[in-house]
Simulated scan of single mutants.
Amino acid sequence: MNYIILDLEWNQADDLKTKLESELTFEIIEVGAIKLNSEYMQIDSFHELIKPQVFNRMNQVTGELIHISMRELENCRNFCEAASDFLRWCGDDYIFCTWGNVDLTELQKNMDFYHMPGLSKKPIKYYDVQKLFSIAFEDKKKRRALQFAVEFLNIKEEVAFHRADADAFYTAKVFKKVAAAEGVLKNYSFDTYRLPKNKAEEINAVFEDYAKYISREFINKLAAMNDKDVVSTKCFLCGAKTRKKVPWFSNNGRNYYSVMVCPRHGNIKGKIRMKKSVNDKIYVVKTMKQVNMDTVNDIIMKRNQLREGRRERRHRT
């Protein structure tokens, strides 16, 4: 299997009127990619500038960041031609690797805008190299800029950042470093631009110290929270039934929290995030993770503060 290290640059509306009128928020104007083989050796590269067809002016902030002018793009190929060649170049057996979690979503949005065949009919498994860097070298939570990672790893800076080919080049260098760290590549990600179509396609992924569940679409939050798999609190490590210490609750309607106790694995924190799909429906990303008593007490405090706030509001009315 090959690794496709992908980076995209895009333009956006330069004024509010154009932004509101456009069906496409970000128009891809540059594709850069590095192909690594199974031994993490570079075997090819891809780079192409793309002639814009949606926005005829460069967004000021974007232009200052990536240093591309509209004049440079006038004689380039259009997105469909460039993207088709890029996907053929990728081959058949590969996995995408990107810095952050945005590029694959924007690639698919642009492909949909031009009515191209989709990359996939379900969530795409890929490597978020930004996340992997944090897992390998930091606290698993921080999300650093690419330049920070390059400097941290003492990678020689050969070209300027913020161009697709350059950022793909540097991301590939960082990826090689994180791939050498034991167990890090077990931590893959899923792009959820395309969602599971039914219960059988739902994602249940178990990692070293947490599990992730990605649901199909629901018509609303209530329907999601009435689904037994969404609210299931079985231990993700052994499958045993757990005792609920803190039932599911929400402090903002978007995130739900719970604490349960497994007889074998102790305290487990559950978190449900309600997300909106491209079809304006709801889907769920649930994580389950072993936690210590400090985290349990923080959740209990959050739950109690929510209850107290509700009591005060009822008292005032």
Rank of each mutant, 00 (worst) to 15 (best):
185 L>F: 15
100 G>C: 15
248 W>A: 04
202 E>A: 07
66 I>E: 04
257 Y>H: 04
38 S>C: 14
185 L>T: 00
183 G>W: 04
37 N>V: 01
250 S>P: 07
291 V>C: 14
88 R>C: 05
221 K>E: 05
177 K>E: 07
295 T>E: 11
302 K>Y: 07
109 K>E: 12
255 N>H: 12
217 E>I: 05
238 C>I: 01
201 E>G: 11
5 I>P: 01
273 R>N: 10
288 M>R: 08
292 N>Y: 04
3 Y>L: 14
283 Y>S: 12
197 K>T: 05
314 R>H: 05
65 L>P: 02
94 Y>A: 05
231 V>P: 06
96 F>M: 12
119 L>S: 03
265 H>W: 01
122 K>W: 11
124 I>G: 04
8 L>K: 14
59 N>G: 14
147 Q>L: 15
73 L>Y: 00
227 D>C: 00
142 K>I: 12
74 E>T: 09
136 A>I: 08
315 H>F: 14
200 A>L: 14
265 H>I: 04
120 S>W: 12
63 G>Q: 03
146 L>V: 06
139 D>G: 09
290 Q>G: 08
213 Y>A: 13
307 R>M: 11
100 G>Q: 10
76 C>E: 10
208 E>A: 15
211 A>P: 01
207 F>Y: 10
258 S>Q: 06
133 F>H: 08
34 I>T: 03
9 E>T: 10
61 V>G: 02
214 I>M: 09
76 C>Y: 01
46 F>K: 03
114 Y>G: 11
147 Q>R: 15
48 E>V: 11
88 R>N: 12
261 V>Q: 14
116 M>C: 10
44 D>S: 12
206 V>G: 09
261 V>M: 13
190 F>Q: 06
295 T>W: 09
300 I>V: 15
216 R>T: 07
192 T>N: 13
218 F>T: 04
287 T>M: 15
222 L>I: 06
98 T>Y: 04
5 I>G: 03
49 L>W: 03
148 F>L: 03
314 R>M: 01
207 F>T: 08
24 L>N: 05
67 H>M: 11
43 I>V: 14
282 I>W: 07
176 K>W: 00
118 G>H: 10
250 S>E: 01
130 Q>P: 05
92 D>H: 13
263 P>R: 02
112 D>G: 02
147 Q>N: 15
91 G>M: 04
196 P>C: 04
202 E>C: 13
116 M>T: 07
114 Y>T: 00
244 K>N: 13
236 F>W: 13
285 V>F: 02
49 L>G: 13
37 N>Y: 10
78 N>E: 12
304 N>T: 13
237 L>K: 07
167 D>L: 15
286 K>T: 03
210 Y>D: 05
143 R>W: 03
95 I>E: 03
77 R>W: 08
7 D>L: 15
163 R>S: 13
42 Q>Y: 01
249 F>S: 11
155 I>V: 09
56 N>A: 02
288 M>L: 15
206 V>C: 05
105 T>R: 14
15 D>L: 10
137 F>I: 07
152 F>G: 04
13 A>R: 00
227 D>Q: 04
23 E>I: 00
167 D>Q: 09
73 L>G: 09
28 I>E: 00
247 P>W: 05
222 L>H: 07
200 A>W: 07
64 E>C: 02
106 E>F: 03
32 G>H: 00
226 N>R: 01
273 R>F: 07
166 A>C: 08
